[in-house]
């Protein structure tokens, strides 16, 4: 993310969540927070507790973010800035589940919208170190067709939380729960065909470390350090994969999109 992207991200997030922009230059933005945003971001539980107990006037704070290293602000945005990462966390917590309807321009006839389940995941491989791969999967809940790169394909469209007047949603034939299971199976299947050098190396390292340790403690197997170290080596070097859901939800899309995906 460059400076501009960081600022745009922060602005979009804050305004989407109801904050009002007070001032905006190309490097700095000041917003008036809402009560919810203040509670989530500003870390002043005592203030809110006090105001609520005394029925006082709620005064959410303003927040100034900048990418200008010289400027005065509540926070300087940069790759490692705690505020930026706080906003990342907040975005992830607020945008984890959805159910959206395509807002196609009104046609002459009411148009059916077909359900898709989208799941975006991070696949993390651990071997003492870590490597992540994102995966954005869509599963057509009528035909069972599956696409990757789902988010990239829908990002230009517009959606709302309710179907528009000229569309009607079709009921899924595959339940979301069953679809989730299919997606998990697909991921397991795909991973089993990927190269495993990263994991084999870790196993070799682990065995070597354990064998040195075992030799060293062979006369004192009850030493608590031995058990601690053994567990630490196992935890550190035993290869594993975790699949974390970033977010997911139901998308109701026009019929034609299936062909578009397959093209």
């Amino acid at each position: 993310m460059d400076d501009k992207a960081m600022l745009n991200f922060s602005e979009s997030l804050l305004t989407t969540c109801g904050a009002k922009v007070i001032d905006r230059t190309h490097q700095t933005i000041t917003v008036q927070l809402t009560e919810d945003l203040d509670k989530a971001l500003m870390n002043r539980p005592f203030y809110w507790h006090y105001i609520e107990k005394t029925n006082g006037i709620k005064q959410p704070k303003t927040l100034t973010l900048t990418t200008d290293t010289e400027a005065k602000a509540d926070a300087h945005l940069h790759q490692g800035s705690p505020r930026l990462h706080q906003l990342f966390r907040y975005a992830k917590s607020q945008g984890a589940w959805t159910c959206l309807y395509d807002q196609a321009p009104a046609g002459k006839q009411p148009e059916p919208l077909e359900p898709w389940l989208n799941v975006n995941v991070t696949i993390s491989k651990f071997n003492g170190l870590r490597e992540d791969t994102p995966l954005s999967i869509g599963l057509h809940l009528i035909s069972g067709a599956r696409v990757e790169g789902f988010m990239d394909n829908v990002t230009e469209r517009s959606f709302s939380l309710a179907p528009s007047a000229y569309t009607y949603p079709v009921r899924p034939l595959i339940t979301p729960t069953a679809a989730l299971r299919r997606i998990e199976l697909f991921i397991t299947e795909t991973l089993s065909h990927k190269p495993k050098g990263w994991a084999e190396e870790a196993i070799i390292k682990k065995e070597a470390e354990l064998s040195l340790l075992d030799q060293f403690f062979q006369d004192t197997p009850d030493d608590p350090t031995y058990q601690n170290e053994r567990r630490a080596i196992e935890e550190r070097l035993q290869p594993k994969i975790s699949v974390q859901v970033i977010n997911g939800g139901l998308f109701y899309l026009p019929k034609s999109i299936l062909h578009h995906f397959q093209a």
């Binding site: 997030l13 989407t16 966390r89 607020q94 945008g95 959805t98 975006n120 959606f159 977010n247 939800g249």
Partner: peptide, 13 residues
């Protein structure tokens, strides 16, 4: 449910 904007921002983050 999250709006599409928030959903996209979460994915981006």
């Amino acid at each position: 449910w999250a709006s599409f904007e928030l959903y996209q921002l979460a994915y981006q983050a």
